[in-house]
Computed example of a mutant assay.
Amino acid sequence: MKNTQHLIAIAALAAATFAGTASAAAPSQEVWFGAQPVASGAPLSRAEVQADLNLWNRAGLNELNAGDHNDVANPAYAQRLAAYQRLRSGPEYVAEVQRLGGSVSTAGTAVQTSAH
Rank of each mutant, 00 (worst) to 15 (best):
P27E: 06
W32Y: 10
A26I: 07
A59G: 06
H116Q: 09
L7H: 14
A35Q: 13
Q85W: 05
P75R: 10
R58E: 14
A83T: 13
G102I: 02
T113W: 15
A14Q: 03
A25V: 08
S105H: 01
Y93H: 11
A11G: 05
L64H: 00
A66M: 07
H116P: 15
P75H: 04
L55V: 06
E92C: 03
L100A: 07
L44P: 03
G67H: 05
G101P: 00
S40R: 05
L100R: 00
A83C: 03
Q50R: 11
S114G: 08
A110R: 08
A15Y: 10
L87N: 01
L87Y: 12
E63P: 05
V97F: 08
V104H: 07
P75W: 02
S28H: 05
Q5K: 14
A39C: 12
L53Q: 15
E96F: 06
A16H: 03
Y84P: 01
P27M: 07
E30G: 10
L61H: 07
F18T: 04
T106V: 14
S40M: 04
N74A: 01
A16P: 05
T106L: 06
E63K: 11
A16D: 00
A42P: 10
G101C: 04
L53S: 13
A51R: 02
A76C: 11
T113C: 08
E63Y: 11
G41N: 01
A25T: 06
Y77P: 00
S89M: 03
N54H: 14
E30L: 09
R80V: 00
A25S: 09
T4D: 13
L53C: 07
L13K: 05
L13S: 03
L64F: 02
A110T: 07
S103L: 08
W32Q: 09
S23V: 11
D68M: 10
Q36F: 11
S89A: 10
E30H: 07
A14I: 08
Y93I: 04
A22Q: 03
D71V: 15
R86G: 06
R80S: 01
R80A: 00
F33L: 15
V49N: 12
Q5G: 14
A15N: 05
T113V: 08
W56C: 08
P91R: 09
E30M: 10
V94P: 07
S114T: 12
A14M: 09
P75L: 04
